[in-house]
Each structure stands twice: as C-alpha cells, then as structure tokens.
Amino acid sequence: MKSLELKPLIHVLNELETRSCLIEQQGNMIMNYYREPQIANELYKINSCTKSVISALVSIAMDQQRGPKPETPILEFFPQLATDSDSRKRDITIEHLLTMSAGFNWTEFGGQNSFPTMSKTSDWVQFVLSQPLSDVPGTRMEYSSGCSQLLATILRNVSGQTVAEFAEQQLFQPLSIESYHWETDPQGTHTGGFGLHLRPMDMLKFGRLYLNQGGWEGRQIIQTETVRYSTRPFLPAAKPQKAFYGWHWWTSSFSDETEIGTETDYFYALGFGGQYIVVVPSYDMVVVVTADRFKKKRTPVDIFRQYIVPLLLQQNK
C-alpha cells in the first residue's frame, strides 16, 4: 500500500480553516493537523459524536451483564408507559433506542424542532416518552437525541453510577482519557445525544478502540462480537443522510467508480458542525475531524468523503 499524498489535503484543511484533522493508519499517525498548536490540548464539544460513546457504554454494560439485553422493553425502566394510551410504546426496546427506531413522532431540528423543545423542558425523559408514535417501533429510523437521553437514563439506573463515572471506570481510564467535560440534563443525568467535550487525540483513541474491535492493549473493553454487531447497518438513515444506522453509529461505503466490486465499508460517529470519528477497517485507519468555523454561506464539509476518500483510492493504485 502506497503512502498517502497529504499535501493537497493540508491545503484544503488550511483553506477551510479546519480546526483539527488526525489520521492514523496501521498504527502510525500519518496526519496530525491543528489549525493552531494549542488546539491539541483543548477540550471541544463533539456534539452528536457523544451518541457513539453512549453506544460503547451501553455495549459494555450489556457485555458485563449489568445492562439489559437489546430486546428488553424500556417499560422495565419507564413504568409510566404502562398507562400510556398508545399500547405500542410498551413494545419499544433498548435496541429500538440504539437504532433510533423507537417510532416517536420527532423532528430533531426543523419541523417540530423536537430537540430544542426538549432541551427547554424541566424533564427531558418525560418529554420524550410523552411524544406520540408516528411509526411502529423498529420499522423506521428517525434521528432523535431523545432516544439517546433515554439510554443515558437507563445506563445510570442499571450501573448505579452517573454516566460519567461509569465512562471513567469502564472506558476513559483504560484508554488514558484524562480530561473531559460532560453536560447534564435537569435531572443531573449526563447528556446521551450531545454535550461531551474531548481532545482530538482522545477522539482518535475511541475510534482506534473500535478499529481494534473492542481490544485495547491486551484487554477486551468491548466484546468483539458486540462491536461488529453494533456497527453493522440496521436501517436506512432518514434523509438527508445517504447512509445506514447501527447502534448510534452511522455506516456507509465508498467505491472506485473505475472498478466494479470495490465497495469499501466504513462506520463513523458524526457531530453537528463537522465533527467526525471515522473507522475504515479494510484500510486499518481512523480519521478524526473537528470543525468550528462555519459561516452562513459555508456549510460543514465532509472532509473524509470529499477529500480523503479520493486519496485512499489513489493509494490503492
């Protein structure tokens, strides 16, 4: 495998005023780009990449048999659903929350503005549970930070710890992630769908854990089969994403248009405003991007798809 030609990418990163871009391949750091040197040590909000961290924590709890199995109805944790007028809510499972297919009538931004509305209420969990169903649970993916908050609440319940305490013990300390900040909801539960702040290098460690199928320095933090299962495509993602959705991970693929049958699968954590943790198993690669400078006329750019994928296809030739 040839080495990547990175000069064009560095030019693009400078042009876009990208905050950071880290690429690790075959265990080697081949790009360690920061717009300013101090960014390397600054905590930054990873937005909805937080969801993939919640997925990891729920996976760990399940592996340790501290957490419920995927098919467990959430009624076990939210008994108020027993009296809800829509009996279908009693069929919602943990896996439905993980795959964003609980069926709630929800538009994250725009439309009903469900997420901003939830965040202004005094009880986010009750707000989510009270939403009517627009779909039979398990049939359609609809992006919802509400599902993530239910998962965080369940994790707090089954672990007997705050989400951050559980994360420190089971994930952050093993990965030597020493510094973070994590927001909470009005009940003091750490936010499941956003609100975690990390350094770019620690985002990379998290991606590497998944590249290594849950293994870290001789220790199995997440079971290999759990990693494989949670990052496979369960349902087509709601528009505008041209992707599939797993357990709070996005999944997609790219191909060399000049060669038939060259589909390369990858999965990724995605945060609002251009935050990415991308894992490409067949290239033995993790890519991290953080971005913070998007004006009204400049929408976030998918640096991985637009600029790194062409370099990878070039590398193969």
Rank of each mutant, 00 (worst) to 15 (best):
S52V: 12
T72C: 13
K45I: 04
I54E: 02
I92L: 11
I10E: 15
V53I: 15
P68A: 13
A40W: 01
S87D: 09
R66T: 09
D84A: 02
T83I: 08
E36G: 02
Y33A: 03
G27P: 10
R66A: 02
E17A: 13
R90V: 06
S52H: 10
G27W: 10
Y34W: 09
S48N: 11
E24K: 12
Q38Y: 04
L57E: 03
L22P: 05
I60F: 02
N41M: 03
I54L: 14
E36R: 12
S52G: 07
P73C: 04
G27M: 05
K7G: 00
P37N: 03
I10N: 03
N14W: 00
C49I: 08
I30G: 01
R66C: 06
S85C: 02
N47P: 03
I54Q: 06
L6E: 04
P8Q: 01
T50W: 05
Q26D: 13
P8G: 01
Q26K: 14
K7A: 13
C49K: 06
D63V: 04
K45W: 04
I39Y: 12
K69G: 11
P70A: 08
K7H: 10
I92R: 12
R90S: 05
S20A: 15
I46H: 04
P8W: 02
I92H: 06
K45P: 07
N41I: 00
D84G: 02
A61T: 11
L6P: 07
I60C: 05
I23C: 08
Q65W: 02
N47M: 12
